[in-house]
Every structure is written in C-alpha cells, then in structure tokens.
Design a protein around this nucleic acid. Sequence first.
DNA 1: CATATAATGTAGTAATATTACCTAAGTTAT
DNA 2: ATAACTTAGGTAATATTACTACATTATATG
Lengths: 290, 290
Amino acid sequence: MAAKHAYQDDNILSVIQDRLDTLNKSERKVAEAILNDPTSATRYSIASLARAAEVSEPTVNRFCRNFSATGFPDFKIRLAQSIATGTPYVGQNISPEDSVAEFADKIVLTTIANLDKARQALSAKALALTIDHLIQAKQINFFGMGGSAPVALDAQHKFFRFNIPVMSYDDALMQRMVAAGSATGDVIVVISYTGRTREMIEIAEIARANGATVIGITAPDSPLSKVCTVALEVTASEDTEVYMPMTSRIIHLTVIDILATGVTLKRGPDFQQHLKKIKDSLKPTRLPIQ
Amino acid sequence: MAAKHAYQDDNILSVIQDRLDTLNKSERKVAEAILNDPTSATRYSIASLARAAEVSEPTVNRFCRNFSATGFPDFKIRLAQSIATGTPYVGQNISPEDSVAEFADKIVLTTIANLDKARQALSAKALALTIDHLIQAKQINFFGMGGSAPVALDAQHKFFRFNIPVMSYDDALMQRMVAAGSATGDVIVVISYTGRTREMIEIAEIARANGATVIGITAPDSPLSKVCTVALEVTASEDTEVYMPMTSRIIHLTVIDILATGVTLKRGPDFQQHLKKIKDSLKPTRLPIQ
DNA sequence: CATATAATGTAGTAATATTACCTAAGTTAT
DNA sequence: ATAACTTAGGTAATATTACTACATTATATG
C-alpha cells in the first residue's frame, strides 16, 4: 500500500522504548522524561524538556537527532503523530489491575495500531490482482476454519450482493470436497491467520491442482502463502500476550472490505442500482426512525 | 470511555474544513494551503507557510489562534496529532478514479477513525455491567442477523473457551424459540447495527419477559437499545456513502474482544491455565515454523 | 598512569515566532 | 456622499526558541 503519502511511521514512542538500553545516561534521562508523559512532552520547549530530564539543551537536541529527526521541533512533530495512534499504552500490556475503561482503551488502541501497520504493509499490487481474479470468477468460495470462520462468513455476506455464486465453508471436509470439485474459473479465498494449518495447505493445493485460482489471506512467507496464486499477506503482531485478543480477524475483515469495494468500483456505476435494490429490500423489516 | 487521558480530539483538519466559509479572505488562503497538503504543513515554519499561502506571518499566527491554539508551534502539534488518524483523506469519499492503493488506504483509515470515535463514546460503566452479567451467566446466546451473523459467530468462538454453554444464532425463528425458552440466569446478547429490526426487538422483548438478561450491542437510543437490560451503544457513522463499507461490524467485534477480555480478567489467573490448554490443543494441526 | 575518545555542558549565534503598531479597505450613520 | 469608525491585513521591532562551536569532564584503552 503506502499511497503517495508514505509517512514512515514506526511509532517513535515504541522505537524509544525499544532502544532504551542502547542509550547513554543522559539520553536515557531524556527518553524517560518523554515516555513518562508523552502528551505533555509535545508541548515542552527544548529548555523545559531539558529541565524535566535534568540535562542540558544540546543533549536533548542530540537525542532528537538520534531518532532520525532533524532537530527538536521535528522530533516533537513526530512524537505528536505517534501519540494520536495508540499513545498512552505503547507496549503496555493489559494487566489484571486495569480498570474496564483502561483495558478497553488498550484493546481498541492496539487494534488501531495493528490496522495501521497492516495498511502500510499491504501490497496494492496483490490487492489489484485479487480484485481482477474476483471479477472474472464464475464462482467464489471462502474457506476459514476456527477463528477465521466468521471472517469467511462475513465475506460471503458481502460478495453475495455481487450476483456471483458465493459460498463460505468452515468445515475441513466440505472444503476438501469443494476444492476437489473446483475447476478453472473458480476462485477460492483461503483465510488463515497462521498460514500453517496442514489441512488448509493441502486443501489449497488440491484446489490449485484442479485449476482453481487460490487467494490466500494469511501470514507473510507462510507455507500457505507459497501455494497460493495470489497471497494477501497480512502482518499481525503475534498474540504473545495472554489477555490481548487476536486482532488479525479484524484486519482480515478489513481486507475483505477492500476487496468488496474494489469489485464494486470495477463493476461500474450501473451496478450501483443493483446494490441499492438489495439495500432497499431490507427497509420493510425495520421500524421507521421516530 | 475516555480513561484518564481524554485528549480533546476533534480532528483539527475537519474543523478547518467545516469552518472554511466563516473565514475571511487571507485566513481562507491559509486554510487552503494547509488542507492542500497537511502532512508537509506540519514541517513548515511560520514563514514558509505564510509564503505558501501568500499572506503575512501574523496572519498565519492569527489563524492558528482562531483554532484554539496558543500559537503556531502549538497549532502544528495539533495538526500533527490529527494527521496520524486518517489524515490524508479527511472527509474524502472513495471515488471511482481512485487507485487501489488509494481506496484501500481510505478504507483502513476510515475504519481507524471510526474505531477511535467508538472508543471515546463507549460507556465503561455499561461494559463493566455487561461483563458482570456474562460472568454469572448459566448460558450465553449471541443473536445476530444478516451482517451481524458473523459477529455473533465470532463471539461464540471466543466465549466457547470460557467453559460456559454458548451458542450463536443467525436465524430469526431459532432466535425466537431460544428467547421463548430462556430463563433467569441466561444472558442473550443481541447484535444489531441499526437497532430497528422489528424481529430483533420482539425477540429481545420475549427474552426479557422470560427473565433472561438481554445485552444489546447496537445504535444509541434505538428501539432495541431501550428494551435491553444493558445497552452497549456503539456510534458508527451511518454508511451513507455508496462505496464505503460498513465499519460497524468491526466495532462490534472489538466490543466482543473487550467483553471476552473482561471475562478472562475477572476469572483470575488459575483460569489462564485452562485457556492455554485450549490453545495448545491446536498445535498438532499446524506445521512447525521452518 | 597517560592518552585517546566519548559524553555532556556553556555560551554565543541563528532561526523562528510573537507583539505592537500602522495602513488600507470596508461599513455605518449622518 | 463623506466623515467616523471598524475590521482586515501588513511591517518591523522584539522576544523566544533552537542550534552550533567550542570547552570541559568523564570513561575507556594501551
């Protein structure tokens, strides 16, 4: 992805946290002063930050340059940008002592951070290719097992509106049968967080052997990714943490959104009528507003 | 929500856009220069921005004060903060001319913006209450129809791990039967984007009449929200736009994440063993790394 | 232990933003 | 229609802030 505006994000705050050990005494003081209260750090002048960290102004300046800023003002800008997306809890894991408000915030902010990371990593080329395949598909099948089953179901809901035969399967046996029965012109979208589920890889191979196009929404360089016609590689930080939920599903859903939008756009304006008709068909089931 | 750090967000860029008409000639020039390329605006000095907008420096300064900044540097900081979450495409809708990279970016950034909005609007109190109900539940049922069916399914997947009988239903008849057969101690979580689906509202009423606790994940002040024991009100901007996908599902999923995490935390540390066992049970189905 | 090298601070300089004041262009009232 | 007033916007001086060059102190190495 990374359209024209490719601001090299990599959250300065987490970079600072990561490199804390490699800093020398005074610079660590600066780092700590910033991490201690990043939000107000953006309002400090170089003098006040120096005072807060109990170092001299040039030290602060050198510190900023260490983090690939051209100087203090530039550093503050970068800091401010990092802050918006997920600041207050950078790297902080959920702890049993958290209040509901706190861990809820952490969950949402982590999700946001991961979405943004995914945005930068997603390949526009792979997306475009996938959209092309989907448009030409005679039939689309979404495969997802376990946690990815809801994603596949969601995709089915979305693509159903396109007037293409579309199904989703969460059962390995059914998936295997569908794969075995597939043919050229069929597109099978395999959704797998790890990309290492044996069963899924085999199923993908069977589908390809039968001439189907296989799209993988999965982890980069995973075994699954290698057997796909097109791999949409999604970097979701491993859920090493006990309490932190899997954000990958959400990223996968967003990828589905992108694909569905891509297909809609390519279908052209006359197709919008069709979509509106489907949407309107739900009206009678709803209570009017007021 | 809004834990301790309640930074008054309200994206400066959209504020500028909104107030464009109320500005006088020179100030509008400044506004346009900024909106034209917000990212590089954060790197300008007051002099260069003045030059870009073809006005004098004090005009720029006055402009900044108009937008509740104490001065130019402060304004830049606010601008930088706004930029991180969804800048380049503030208010810009997806257009058929967009490249894949562009509309993909727009989709992800819109999703992020909506998540952040939801984060600020979510009631920690309602969340806490819901978690309490869920912990004490004898049985949990998730109801979601249409686009919310995958969300309900996802919730089932998550809560299944808690050793509580949990089911999800996407079929109105089944939901009605389950609601009719429910009793005190049962918790029914109703997921509905609009909160105005007649069927769902009736079902919620039936469940409550039978003594079940009904949690609604739905729109604020909707008819559904009023018949629930606890309403988790989610503000998702209406999907008025043709091409923009429904981001509400994603917000709903995140709410599910929060609830699941809340339950995990309350269950205490001995319960983590149980979770680990379930996670480990999947290992044999996966290819080893390398 | 002497010397080299890195780390940090001081003070002067340059850049940047802000203020006070002035001029021109509109507005309103007579 | 024009005098008085108000608002918009600019100029230039001033104050603030950040940066550089150099000096000093600490730390490592032969």
